[in-house]
């Protein structure tokens, strides 16, 4: 790469390069002190901008004045949840979407009115604090927590190094089946990873509905669905990171 191509270094930071380009930039930065320093400056700046208080929260009164649904808005007003809480609320919509009409069957973004009502009703009935039953960033705490609660042992892996720190886990039910739900964070977003035992093997398949993206796949005796409102490529990166860690671990077990 050209040493003066600052935008390429920046694109590397922003995860906007394909694998070959990334490799090239990474190699160049190992050898080139100037580009390495520039990269660290960018990284430090991004670190500064990731301060959670920089993101403004919609004031409760505004939420209430914009949205017609009184029950939910009054609940929101009382709680004044932090960014985290709102992210949780948002991810509940994803859960509602799955539970009520089957995101996975490829329902398009234009649901009929009944479905919209179902989502809306579901949203109102949701309690923010139900997202996480066990709050821990430690996989060795989260994994044993599921023991005895499920008839299987879920794969639990922290992905903090890859930018997806584990936040905790909970029990859930999808279409009548008890499943494990792991909760990961990515910047200000929440990713739910559902899993349960399943035979066979399928490659990751992506769907999108109502602003939520999901990726589902089956491998190693387990079915997985990741759901989030992060961008599709971020969710793909998450899935790749999770699968990468898991295959490494499963190999070392043998």
């Amino acid at each position: 790469m050209n040493c003066h191509d600052a935008l390429l270094v920046q694109a590397y930071l922003d995860d906007e390069l394909d694998a070959a380009q990334s490799l090239e930039v990474a190699r160049h930065m190992e050898a080139c002190e100037r580009c390495g320093t520039y990269y660290r400056r960018l990284e430090a700046t991004r670190g500064a901008m990731s301060h959670p208080q920089l993101r403004y929260q919609a004031p409760a009164y505004l939420r209430a004045s914009i949205l017609p649904a009184a029950p939910r808005t009054s609940a929101m007003t009382r709680r004044r949840p932090p960014a985290w809480g709102l992210a949780l609320a948002a991810s509940f919509l994803a859960l509602a979407a799955i539970g009520s009409f089957g995101l996975l069957r490829g329902t398009g973004p234009r649901q009929d009115a009944m479905v919209a009502e179902a989502i809306s009703g579901h949203m109102r009935s949701m309690q923010i604090n139900h997202l996480i039953d066990v709050v821990s960033t430690d996989q060795h705490t989260v994994k044993p927590w599921f023991d005895g609660k499920l008839d299987f042992s879920p794969e639990v892996t922290d992905l903090a190094a890859e930018g997806f720190p584990l936040a905790g886990g909970r029990m859930d039910v999808l279409q009548g089946r008890s499943v494990a739900a792991l909760v990961y964070r990515h910047r200000l977003h929440v990713i739910n990873l559902y899993q349960w035992p399943a035979a066979g093997s399928t490659e990751p398949a992506a769907t999108a509905a109502d602003g939520y993206n999901s990726v589902s796949w089956t491998e190693g005796g387990m079915a997985f669905i990741a759901v989030s409102n992060v961008a599709p490529d971020a969710l793909d990166a998450f899935v790749a990171a999770f699968r990468g860690r898991n295959s490494l671990r499963n190999e070392s077990k043998r």
Binding site: Y56, A58, L67, P68, L86, Q111, E117, S120, M123, Y212
Partner: peptide
């Protein structure tokens, strides 16, 4: 139209904070 409003909400309620954050900055 209740249904339309419900659909609208389901689409955009999750992004109200993002909208506010941008407008505010």
């Amino acid at each position: 139209d209740r249904h339309r409003t419900a659909r609208f909400e389901a689409c955009f309620l999750p992004h109200l904070d993002a909208a506010w954050n941008l407008a505010r900055w």
